[in-house]
């Protein structure tokens, strides 16, 4: 990282943590993910207890009496992944909405872009600092689930895969939010767009009944949901990474392009 980029990166983090939004979002996300993870864990434990109690009531304990579909993957990791992704979708626009829009509204972009800093350097610092925040959110929220999973030997590799998927997904949602923020100087407009676009591309299965099989399959490949689902199952695939990387690249390109467009308008 060049010295200038490092200076910009530090400035972005300083600005981010100077606002109460960062702390509110961080606290809300950690609290929600913690509560919902334990809720699923509790449900899973209750199910195991019910099946095993029935087995004991019938005259003896047999682990085989618990149906195969009642397992940590189906009862804990996949539902937790779905919840986490919705929480990310709910809180990330609150972080991304101000990143470019505020700079433009306050006119500080004029100060930056007349110091021989390249627009791509400004955009890169903003994107990287936001992704670091997403990483921080997920890392803090992972502490309690990791402790439980490690203690109960439920499958640390599943939790790791789940969080990798959430990181890819979170970064992609953040990139969309940043692109939206770069297109306007209104934080409200940026937030509305940052909520609307990921929701629109989250899942296309509701359209399947009216689409041909080929188009439905293509839309499925474009949907965010289908890409983090596989992580929750513990499957890490390169193409999922490429998908999230593609969204990040597109978001970055839009951010740089919007700055250049402002100059040439």
């Amino acid at each position: 990282m060049t010295r200038r980029l490092w200076a910009l990166f530090r400035k972005e983090l300083r600005t981010l943590f100077a606002s109460p939004i960062a702390y509110i979002v961080l606290t809300a996300f950690v609290a929600l993910t913690g509560v919902y993870f334990f809720q699923h864990l509790l449900t899973y434990n209750r199910l195991l207890f019910v099946f095993q109690s029935e087995a004991i009531g019938a005259g003896g304990f047999d682990a085989g009496t618990v149906p195969l579909q009642v397992n940590s993957l189906n009862e804990l990791f996949i539902p937790a992944s779905n919840d986490f992704s919705l929480f990310l979708l709910a809180v990330l626009p609150l972080v991304t909405m101000r990143v470019f829009a505020e700079e433009r509204a306050h006119g500080t972009d004029e100060l930056l872009l007349t110091t021989s800093i390249r627009p791509w350097e400004v955009a890169l610092a903003k994107h990287l600092s936001t992704y670091v925040f997403v990483f921080l959110m997920l890392a803090v929220s992972a502490i309690y689930p990791a402790a439980v999973v490690a203690k109960s030997r439920l499958g640390m590799e599943h939790l790791l895969a789940l969080y990798m998927g959430q990181l890819g997904y979170g970064v992609a949602v953040a990139a969309i939010g940043l692109a939206c923020s770069s297109l306007t100087q209104s934080q409200i407009v940026a937030a509305v767009l940052a909520y609307a676009i990921p929701f629109m591309i989250l899942d296309f299965t509701w359209l399947h009944p009216v689409l041909s099989e080929g188009i439905a399959e293509l839309l499925n490949e474009l949907a965010l949901q289908s890409h983090f689902d596989s992580f929750a199952r513990g499957v890490i695939e390169l193409r999922r990474g490429i998908y999230f990387g593609g969204i990040v690249a597109l978001g970055f390109t839009i951010s740089v392009g919007s700055m250049e467009f402002t100059r040439a308008r």
């Binding site: 200038r4 200076a7 500080t108 110091t115 021989s116």
Partner: peptide
């Protein structure tokens, strides 16, 4: 003056100096 109001004076000057090489 379009400045970063959440920065301290010294921090801001350091950042601007670094951005200018």
């Amino acid at each position: 003056p379009k400045l970063y109001t959440d920065h301290g004076v010294r921090t801001f000057l350091r950042m601007m100096g670094e951005l200018r090489g």
